[in-house]
């Protein structure tokens, strides 16, 4: 993936110089390992700050809403799908965008890697599938495949869906992955076990809303959790309120979520809230044969009524 760097910089420089765009949104190296930061380049001479490696998990589509400028954006598969959702939902015009597509081979999971070592990780060097992790007194090689973000491990849309130019050759999509093993496990539980499971995974939530803020879908001027008349949900970390927040947020993402993993990645306490969004993603697939963000022409199934919509559940 490292070889994309030159191409990304080259394209960015070109489009900034030719004034095709006013700015390019990409990543720059973070101050600590595995924590790349979103970065906006406006000057063609600054493109060398842009980088690409396996730590670019943040979904850059999140930075597109309400923009009036012409924007260049670097997009891996999931980013591009969220850009498609944005275009459908009038967050940005296709004409405003120059999308630099990045075929992706998955982002690594910082938590998994950190957990493997007791000391502080000071550097990470990536070469092909090998990741060399070193710190004070240790150095170890890991296979990237073993430490992928959970959503990346089951990703079936690694290549960008909409783009103007590619930063590298398209990669082979993963085949035969079972995307919904975890969801089926929850579906198979009886109500009590399910309730307990929800309680357990949500127990650590501190209602910081990092998940919401990292999610490109959560762009409402005022989020329902912040409304006061009516007050849909209490502001405390009372379990009922926490559940209400997570469940309703998941519903708001139904048919729109691309499973980019930004929510889970942003969570400071490591909650697997993707299990909720994935359940709805699975339902949309089963009921409407729909996957979010694969087109900029059709609205998600819950936005439209069609005579052939499934109705077997009404009996």
């Amino acid at each position: 993936m490292l070889e994309y760097n030159d191409k990304i910089r080259e394209i960015s420089k070109k489009i900034l110089k030719e004034c095709k765009v006013d700015l390019v949104i990409g990543f720059r190296k973070g101050s600590v390992p595995m924590m790349n930061e979103p970065h906006v380049v406006k000057n063609p001479d600054d493109v060398d700050k842009l980088i690409w490696d396996s730590h670019c998990g943040i979904n850059l589509a999140n930075y597109l809403t309400e923009r009036k400028e012409k924007v260049g954006i670097i997009a891996k598969g999931c980013d591009s799908r969220n850009i498609a959702v944005h275009i459908i939902e009038n967050k940005i015009d296709r004409d405003q965008l120059y999308i630099i597509g990045v075929p992706c081979q998955g982002m690594v999971d910082k938590r998994q890697i950190t957990a493997k070592f007791s000391g502080e990780i000071q550097s990470i060097i990536e070469k092909g599938d090998t990741i060399t992790v070193s710190g004070n007194g240790f150095e170890e090689k890991l296979s990237k495949t073993d430490v992928l973000q959970k959503n990346c491990a089951v990703c079936t849309h690694r290549n960008p869906v909409v783009y103007d130019e590619l930063a590298g050759d398209l990669v082979e999509e993963q085949r035969g992955v079972d995307r919904y093993e975890d969801v089926r496990a929850v579906e198979a539980m009886d109500s009590e076990a399910k309730w307990q499971y929800f309680d357990e995974i949500l127990a650590p939530c501190i209602r910081c809303y990092a998940c919401r803020n990292a999610c490109p879908l959560c762009y409402c001027p005022t989020c329902f959790v912040d409304e006061s008349r009516p007050q849909w949900v209490g502001k405390s970390i009372d379990p009922t309120d926490t559940r209400t927040f997570h469940f309703l947020r998941a519903y708001h993402c139904a048919g729109r979520c691309t499973d980019c993993g930004a929510c889970e990645r942003a969570c400071p306490v490591g909650i697997n809230m993707r299990v909720f969004t994935k359940k709805l993603e699975k339902d949309c697939k089963d009921l409407f044969d729909w996957e979010a963000g694969l087109t900029i022409d059709v609205r998600p199934p819950l936005d439209i009524y069609r005579p052939e919509d499934p109705d077997e559940f009404i009996k």
Binding site: E89, N90, Y219, C220, P221, R299, D303, I304
Partner: peptide
């Protein structure tokens, strides 16, 4: 309009074409 996010769900979903931008 202060709360509207312009996502267009209402425009798409209304059977009577009442909402517009």
């Amino acid at each position: 309009p202060m709360w509207c996010s312009s996502c267009g769900v209402c425009v798409s979903i209304c059977p009577y074409s009442a909402p517009t931008f």
